Simulated assay, not measured.
Amino acid sequence: MAKIVRHPNVADYILEMSLDEIAQRPSGLMDLFEDGKLVVVKNYRLPFDFSAMEALDDRTDSIDDQKIRRKLKKLEATTFFSGKDPEKIIDEKGDVESLRFDTPLRQALFASFCRSDPKVFANASNALRTAHDELTRIFKLCFPTYETTRLISSLRLTETVFENLHWDNHSIDDDFHQARIFCNLDRRKRIWNVGDRCIDFMEANYAKYDLAQFAGRDPNEMLSYIAGDILGGTRDIWKDDRPRHHVAFEPGEVWLGESRMISHQIWYGQRAMVYMWFVNVNSMHDKSRRFNARVEDLHARMAANLPSSSSHESIAAA
């Protein structure tokens, strides 16, 4: 189980639920996810070949094409196993010596991450396909009526330490909903800190930071302002003194949360999968709980000096 240290001055929105408990709920996790809960899947570990990831090289400096290199740094897990099977290059002994792919990206992936080793590529592809299928199964169980339009299957292979506290800004100005599942693919713990939820922080500090200036604007602008100008961003991580919960996720552990709603920082992590599904808002449990609508509602309530419509306790005053 994840090790969780709850801070008394942060609203306790962390839940631990087994897949069986989730399956027994008609709405799965839809209502809880939309309400800004962070859900850790209890008594579960992703069946995964960790050695397949450990065999990968996370360096991309051997790739000269800068465009391809940027794509490798934001690699999607499905790149390993989607598309046409590679052509096998056979040596004089009849063994597979190398592989030839039909796209420059997959060829570069093979050359850099897999060091042009067919066995390393095969093992990683099989492991990631298995993980993909399992996360897809968990998604369907947790979000039974969600209709999806797109999947971003991010694969994180590089070490991350001492990230700044932030709410995710996807730089997408569309009014959309997302479902997000995280999984630790490393043998070591992945350590997160999680703090204020966005609406809680905005409501408690609306006048102090003149957040009314963002009414009617893209909510991403406000997220950037709060995370950067107020909390310090990546340059001044020391500037942030917000209270937060501490969570250490075990190898293979899975958790879910709306990362635009929950402030978070990776304190330490190496290999992970982050699956993000774009969801048709009309298929939500309650589409008024989508991120953009909740931000608009807050601006309207603050302008009218109305009390909170949130169903949860807020402990976010600066």
Rank of each mutant, 00 (worst) to 15 (best):
C198Y: 12
A122C: 08
F81K: 03
D31V: 00
A77D: 05
S308V: 04
Q178V: 09
E134A: 09
P144E: 03
T136F: 05
R100I: 15
I199G: 00
R137D: 09
S308W: 03
R180A: 01
N220G: 15
N205C: 11
M261G: 00
P118K: 05
A77M: 06
T234Q: 15
Y275R: 05
M284F: 07
L72G: 06
V10S: 04
G269M: 03
R271E: 02
F48L: 13
G216D: 14
L256I: 14
M222H: 00
D236T: 00
Y206Q: 03
L75F: 12
V40F: 10
A316F: 11
W277Q: 02
K93C: 00
R115S: 13
K42E: 15
D35G: 07
L128R: 00
V39Y: 02
K140H: 14
S51K: 10
T158I: 13
Y146I: 12
P47H: 14
A52E: 09
D173E: 08
Y206C: 01
Q270C: 08
K88D: 10
A316S: 12
S311K: 14
D65W: 03
L19N: 05
V41D: 01
K239H: 10
A272Q: 04
Q265E: 11
R301V: 00
R69N: 06
V10I: 07
M222E: 05
M222S: 06
I181S: 02
M222R: 05
L185A: 06
V194I: 13
R187T: 12
S62P: 02
G94F: 13
Y225R: 07
P144M: 04
I226G: 00
F80Q: 01
L38Q: 01
R260C: 11
W192C: 02
A300M: 09
A124Y: 10
I68N: 11
G36E: 01
A212M: 07
V40M: 14
D95I: 03
W167P: 02
N126F: 14
K67L: 09
N43H: 12
L298Y: 06
G195V: 01
S259Y: 04
R289G: 08
F176S: 12
F278T: 06
L223I: 13
R197P: 01
P219N: 06
K42Y: 15
S51T: 12
L29N: 08
Q270A: 06
V161D: 14
K71G: 04
H285L: 09
R290W: 01
A131Y: 07
L29H: 08
G94W: 15
R106H: 12
G216Y: 04
P251V: 07
K93E: 06
G83K: 05
R150N: 03
D61R: 11
F81E: 03
D173H: 10
H264T: 02
Y13N: 01
A204T: 11
A304F: 11
I22V: 15
W267Q: 15
K84I: 08
F176C: 10
L72M: 06
S314Y: 01
I266W: 13
L223M: 15
L56Q: 07
E16N: 09
K67W: 14
L157K: 00
G233Q: 03
R150K: 08
S116V: 02
K88I: 05
L128N: 03
L56R: 07
E159D: 10
C183G: 04
A52C: 12
R115D: 06
Q265V: 03
R235A: 15
V161K: 13
I230S: 06
R137T: 14
R187K: 14
P307I: 14
D20R: 04
G233Y: 01
H7K: 08
K93G: 00
M17F: 04
